[in-house]
Amino acid sequence: MIVRQLAERVGTEFHVDTDTWYSTRLLVKSDQVGFSLHDTTIKAGTETEIWYKHHVEAVYCIQGEGEIEVLESEEVYPISAGTLYVLNGHEKHLLRGRTDMRMICVFNPPTTGREVHDAEGTYPLDLI
Rank of each mutant, 00 (worst) to 15 (best):
E115L: 01
T112H: 12
E91T: 03
T112K: 15
S73T: 08
I68S: 10
T24K: 03
G89S: 08
A81C: 12
I79L: 15
D118R: 04
V33W: 09
A81I: 03
L127S: 04
W51A: 02
G113T: 07
W21A: 06
T111H: 02
S73D: 07
T40G: 01
T111F: 00
R98S: 09
E57D: 08
K29A: 09
W21K: 05
H93K: 06
V70F: 11
Q63K: 14
S23T: 00
H117P: 04
H54T: 04
T40E: 11
G64Y: 10
G34P: 02
R102Q: 08
Y52M: 14
D17R: 14
K43L: 01
L71G: 11
R96P: 11
S23K: 00
E74T: 07
N108C: 15
T41G: 04
Y52C: 10
K43E: 02
T83P: 04
K53P: 06
E47A: 11
V76H: 12
H38F: 02
R96S: 10
M103A: 08
D100R: 14
Y123C: 03
I79K: 10
L127D: 06
H90A: 00
G34R: 08
A81D: 06
H55K: 14
V16T: 04
L26S: 03
I79C: 15
R96H: 14
M103S: 06
G45W: 06
H117A: 02
W21V: 03
D39H: 12
D19Y: 10
E65S: 01
D100Q: 09
T112C: 05
L26G: 08
I62R: 05
T41A: 05
V70P: 01
I42S: 09
S30D: 02
R96E: 07
I42M: 13
V70L: 15
E75G: 00
D39Q: 06
G82H: 02
E91M: 11
R98A: 01
Y60E: 05
S73R: 07
G97E: 00
L125V: 05
Q32G: 04
V33E: 10
G121P: 01
G121Q: 02
H55N: 11
P110I: 02
G89A: 13
L71N: 07
Y77H: 15
T20W: 06
E47K: 14
E49T: 15
H55L: 11
T46V: 00
G45N: 02
L27M: 12
D31L: 10
L26T: 09
V76D: 09
P110L: 00
E69Y: 07
L84M: 13
T20P: 08
T112N: 01
G121I: 01
E49R: 13
I128M: 12
R98D: 12
Y77L: 11
G66P: 04
G64E: 10
Y22C: 09
